[in-house]
Design a protein around this nucleic acid. Sequence first.
DNA 1: TCTGGGGTCCTAGGACCC
DNA 2: TCTGGGGTCCTAGGACCC
Length: 480
Amino acid sequence: MRSTPTILHLDMDAFFAAVEQASKPSLRGKPVIVGGLGPRGVVSTASYEARVHGVHSAMAMAHARRLCPNAAYLYPRFTLYRQVSDIVMTLLHELSPLVEPLSLDEAFVDLAAGDSGRRLAGLGHREVTAAARGTAEALRARIAEATGLTASVGLAGSKLLAKIGSEAAKPDGLVVIEPGTERDFLGPRSVRTLWGVGPATAEHLRRAGITTIAEVAETGEAELVRLLGKAHGASLHAMATGRDDRPVVAERDVKSISVEDTFDTDLTDRARVRFEVARLADRCVRRLREAGRSGRTVVLKVRHYDFTTLTRSETLRAPTDDPGVVKETAARLLESVVTTGGVRLLGVGVAGLADFTQEDLFAQFAEETAAREEAAGDGTAAAPEPGAPPPEPAERRWRPGQDVSHPEYGPGWVQGSGLGRVTVRFEVPTGRPGRVLTLAIEDPALQPAEPLPLTSWTPPPGSPEAGPPEAGRDGDAGAA
DNA sequence: TCTGGGGTCCTAGGACCC
DNA sequence: TCTGGGGTCCTAGGACCC
């Protein structure tokens, strides 16, 4: 708990949907819904125009379509979101070396750290508050300039209050919660406002007659611990009374890497289930290797037709990033799971991540790998793997939201496709709403394209974004 | 209306060791 | 022969967050 509001929480407004609107001029001011568009998709983000109709994150896409049939429905473009996120994070790092990202569109910043923090240290309470407010407003303006997007900011003496502040500031606002006013601010709000209180905990508390944060604060810590368990009860009591001393932490280690797939229709063929587990294991290892990590525990996740979900895990003697080892372990775990009735989701993960370099691992596993490859023999690409689904007819697939370009009409994006046709809106982020044309799906002139930047903004010299590709890769890991 | 995909943290029981 | 307690690791599940 600090006596000045120097913890900043930034939250981009309706991030994915806002990026799409900034990218596609024809969608500005219109309802936009980003998420999985398949039969089992859910909403990732709805624009404010769509929220008016009751659409919100985590809602089944089928439900959203009924509530808001005229919205633009788009697949997420994570590559672009990551690029925009990098720009925002760069701007945050200009405020302080202590930046803690929570996701692509959210982060804490400790304004009391670093050079600017030392400047604040010499000031009185009112001056610090005014300076923090000025910093936050300048930040919001810079983000708008660099990305064309709006962000909301909370300033407070703790993480909890800063986060609740940014929520209260939405959209496109700033809320400062003066230290000392925490309990008044929190008291009347629902327990659901508190970090870590979801549907289950809220229901638990409701049955005990507790619905507001003030009521949590009045309940003794011992009682909360009895109700919710040691860690949860204690932290809830602290938060409700405004006590929160969690520091802003810049570098957090990844603890696990996993991939999972929900299938459009349940898998009933056991061979197909085995095949999909092998594919997921490969994808998981690819991600593991991209991160330069290896892990000891392989986890298999299975969700049945009725949504019951189980995990099976096995811990190896040493960390691995070997696709063969992960695949074999996942396959072994699968053999202990009954899948009659149908499988809705499969997942493969690796936990217990180690910092072992690939070289160490290679030495450790060279023998085993060599032995396995020998056993597997050659002839790998000869026949399709057992369980592989029948090959699709080679028709080009265009996904709603996808970037394309055409030599005559220029850059654009796919609105929809079907019946051998694809509908494309030809426009660019910095232009006016463009025209819509319908082309043949097989039209060779239409090609997939990379997303265009939202603005002509370029990172300032010396920032991580502008630096040489390898600069600071290891350098800032252990910075104190 | 029928529920994504990527994570984190906590709890609890059993094995195993000292 | 009966009965300790503590610590750590592993496994499984659940709640929660974005």
